[in-house]
Amino acid sequence: MTTHQPVNHTSNNDSTIAEQSKNQNNDNKRANYKAIIEVDSLSFSIKNNAILKNLNFTVGSGEIYALLGGNGAGKSTTLKTLLGFNKPTQGSVRVAGKEVSKALDFVRGKTAYLPESATLYPHLTARENVEYFLSLADINKTDEQINAAFKRVALQEGAWERPMQTYSKGMRQKTAIALAILREAPIFLLDEPTSGLDPVAIDEFNQLVRELALSGATILMVTHDVYGACQVANRIGLLRAGELVGEFDAPENGRIDTEQVHAAFAQRGA
């Protein structure tokens, strides 16, 4: 059995985990990734209420980073800040080397965002949805290319021309991923992507995410699902009350130990 070790990036008041987190091998492995998402000393407050506190983490090309935390931990706020919907109170957020607030169009053009409930337009078919969003992004794709993307995300062929109001959540997620693939977005921001999916759909989704990472995509997902995060992520950041209190790296050719993460998650009451 592979040993999984949490790495540093912890808060000062969590010395136990911090001591365990020093793992030179994992640090070396991370150095292989080219940092695409860089969160540096990020704080965000609303009316003196600190939502994010001094967050520091990076996500590299080909990496799947899961930001794990309970309700109200600041996961979605982090994603929204990365998309430029929130202006940092302190610190900086860079995507593909550019400051988000100064290059909003550039960042959004490079990013595929999947909200928790990727409803898209219920009155449109999957194809119409994809064509609409692509036309807004000035991207021309042939029917064959769109079909290929649907096949890649394993969206049943019979559903392509059906209004999306008849779709399950998993099918909607697949359509949104197909759109992201067609947009050739190198960065994926996923908000609770497997929430509400059945186990088969989760497996299919995880497989798709892994394939995207293998093709070089940078993937940041936020979730409260410990098991799901461990299944797919190369690295997990544990978020509690807006603070990054620990990070866990997957070993070479292995997965992050679910029990260890679960213990830390429970211990911290994240």
Binding site: K80, L83, R108, Y113, T119, L120, F133, A176, R183
Partner: peptide, 11 residues
Amino acid sequence: SQTLSYLLAQG
């Protein structure tokens, strides 16, 4: 329906 944030996030 959250398509607004989706649209805005698409640029």
